[in-house]
Simulated assay, not measured.
Amino acid sequence: MCLNEKYLPVYQFSEKHSLHIMAPHADILTAVLNFRPQEDWLFRYATAVRELPIRLLDVIQGRSAKSRPSFGMENFTLLEKNGVLELVFGLAGKFWQADYGQTTISTASDFLAFNKSGTAKLVLSFTVEKLNETHTRLTTETRIFCLDKEAKRSFTPYWYLIRPISGLIRLRILKAISHSVRNEMPSTPIN
């Protein structure tokens, strides 16, 4: 059973992207864990636009706009890693709210047990499939489950608003991971 099925077998929204990478499969999940999307200009820009309302509210209410850390991989909880083949992160909250309405999830069991009404759960997975000795398929999938009708009603317009940029960011993440793995591979002499 894949980890997505373990942590979020039922979901209403999903997005999946894959990329073939010329690199051994054993190196790829390490690159995923080391990747920071904040290094990508599109991710930084999209996050800044997404967070503009809450930052303006902070300024209006006399709080420093810089006191709130930007959204990033630090917001996710690593739920489980399956060797060099798969890993899954989790997130829970009211993602459509200006401040993301995030609930702190510390462990995999916290994520599985989470069931607060009016909220949603999200898993972000990365799966590695060895194609041959030199090529690997890296797949990322995002699944979202709204815990009730209220959450689904709130999340649906947000999903359709962010999905195009989210998909583009996921593709850029896959390409950046591919680039980092290829750059770290030792060069082999050409005979």
Rank of each mutant, 00 (worst) to 15 (best):
L3C: 08
E5I: 05
K6L: 07
K6Y: 02
P9M: 00
P9S: 10
Q12W: 01
Q12M: 00
H20F: 03
I21D: 06
H25T: 01
D27R: 01
I28Y: 02
F35S: 06
W41F: 11
E51V: 11
L56C: 03
V59Q: 06
V59C: 04
S64D: 14
A65M: 06
R68I: 10
P69V: 08
G72F: 00
G72D: 15
M73T: 11
E74L: 01
K81I: 07
V84P: 01
L87P: 11
V88E: 06
G90F: 08
G93F: 09
F95G: 12
A98I: 08
L112E: 15
N115A: 14
A120Y: 08
A120V: 15
K121D: 09
K121N: 12
L122P: 05
T127V: 15
T127G: 10
K130L: 05
T134K: 04
T140R: 03
T140P: 15
T142D: 05
T142F: 02
D148V: 13
T156S: 13
Y158V: 11
W159Y: 05
Y160R: 05
I162Y: 04
I162G: 12
I162M: 07
I165C: 10
L168M: 12
A176Q: 14
H179I: 13
V181Y: 06
N183K: 14
P189D: 13
